[in-house]
Amino acid sequence: MTPSYYLLLSALLFTIGAVGVLVRRNAIVVFMCVELMLNAVNLTLVTFARINGTLSGQVMAFFVMVVAAAEVVVGLAIIMSIFRTRRTASVDDANLLKY
């Protein structure tokens, strides 16, 4: 076994997250899938930090976490306000902007 396995794991998690975004309709679950993708990327960064022998990857993963936190806050606020007006959290119901 080599550290590459972590990368493979990360790839699989990223894919699962991507597919989740595509198939789930609850906006909050969609958000969670995005979080999963971000985590997969973090795993990649950590693994590369190990492979390269430098901490920059870990620092980058740290920044990713910060940005993810900010994103979650704003995203959940948006979901809340949409829910307040439309009484739904389904991404399919917000489809007014179309042909």
Partner: peptide, 29 residues
Amino acid sequence: QQAPFLGFVQIIVYTGAIMMLFLFVLMLV
């Protein structure tokens, strides 16, 4: 993977705070 700081941040901030926020919103919705 020799990243103890990130590991703890992951557990405390992500799992502890962010995921709890998710659950909180879920309960609201």
